[in-house]
Simulated assay, not measured.
Amino acid sequence: MSYSPWKDAEVRHPDLDIERCDIAPARGVWVRSENMILIDENLDRTWRRATLAHELAHVDLGHVSAVEGFFARRIEREADMLAARRLLGSVDAIADAVAAHPGDTAAVADQLDVPVEVLLRRVEKMHPRDRAAIEARASRSGG
Rank of each mutant, 00 (worst) to 15 (best):
M36D: 09
V29R: 07
L52Y: 10
R86N: 12
V59P: 07
L82Y: 04
S65N: 15
R48P: 02
A66I: 09
A95L: 06
L112G: 02
E19H: 13
I39M: 10
V114N: 00
V29Y: 05
L56P: 03
R140Q: 08
G89K: 01
D44E: 10
A107S: 13
L56F: 06
D22T: 14
V118W: 00
K125Q: 11
A136T: 12
D104G: 06
G62Y: 04
H63D: 08
D80P: 04
L38A: 08
A24F: 13
K125D: 04
R32Y: 15
D22S: 14
E78M: 10
V116N: 04
A84N: 01
R122N: 03
V116A: 10
A66L: 14
R74Q: 15
D92N: 09
N42M: 12
P128E: 06
V108W: 01
A109Q: 04
K125I: 03
A83P: 07
G69M: 10
H127N: 14
D8K: 14
G62S: 09
L119A: 02
S139M: 08
A53H: 02
R122P: 03
E19G: 05
L112E: 02
F71L: 15
R45L: 15
A100H: 06
M36V: 13
A107D: 08
A57R: 04
A106Y: 09
E124C: 02
E10D: 03
D96N: 12
I37R: 05
C21K: 14
A99N: 04
V67N: 09
A57W: 04
I23H: 11
D22Q: 12
D15Q: 05
S90W: 00
I37W: 03
V29C: 05
V116W: 08
R49P: 01
R122E: 01
S90M: 01
E124V: 03
A107T: 07
L43M: 12
L88G: 00
A106L: 13
V118N: 00
T51N: 07
L52Q: 10
L56E: 06
H58N: 06
A66V: 12
A100M: 12
L119F: 06
D44M: 07
D15L: 10
D130Q: 08
D8N: 04
A95D: 04
K125M: 10
D113W: 05
